[in-house]
């Protein structure tokens, strides 16, 4: 059975600005305690579109069974980080930049499960394809 990973941004916002503090909570359900080997949580940007994916991690934390009292990695955790000045979220034609909180759970049987919660950094409007084509 796949674990159920819940990721929620604390203040419910979806649009942030450079310098804002991002607070996020995450927890694991639907899986036995001893099934989980490690958890990684990261705040990162990645590109989408025609080009190969680029990725940049702004914040990263990793927890393993040995580090946690009682060895239960399923408990509710919170991460907090101050968002950087760049890169801003961007929806272009061949290049898109997206920000997200990504939680990755490593299970004992060698599998890993990933959940991500997107958010927007900055307020750069999407490039409108019709305008671009008219200009061409």
């Amino acid at each position: 059975m796949e674990p159920l990973i819940s990721v929620a941004l604390r203040d419910g916002k979806r649009v942030y600005h450079p310098g804002d503090t991002l607070t996020c909570e995450y927890q694991i359900d639907g899986v036995a305690r001893d099934e989980i080997q490690a958890i990684e949580a990261s705040v990162l940007w990645h590109t989408e579109g025609k080009g190969d994916e680029d990725l940049g991690v702004h914040y990263f934390e990793r927890h393993t069974v040995g580090e946690v009292n009682g060895g239960d990695l399923r408990a509710l955790r919170r991460l907090e980080t101050r968002l950087p000045n760049s890169p801003l979220s961007y929806l272009g034609v061949v290049v898109k930049i997206r920000w997200c909180v990504r939680v990755r759970v490593f299970l004992r049987r060698g599998k890993d499960v990933v959940v991500q919660h997107p958010f927007q950094l900055g307020d750069v409007p999407a490039v409108v394809l019709e305008q671009v084509e008219q200009e061409e």
């Binding site: 579109g49 025609k50 080009g51 190969d52 272009g92 034609v93 061949v94 290049v95 490039v127 671009v132 200009e135 061409e136």
Partner: peptide, 21 residues
Amino acid sequence: EEEATYHQGTDVRTESRCVYE
């Protein structure tokens, strides 16, 4: 201009697109 580089097998291709003028 937006520029995106991608691998296609052993080839490396780059596509450019003007998004504002």
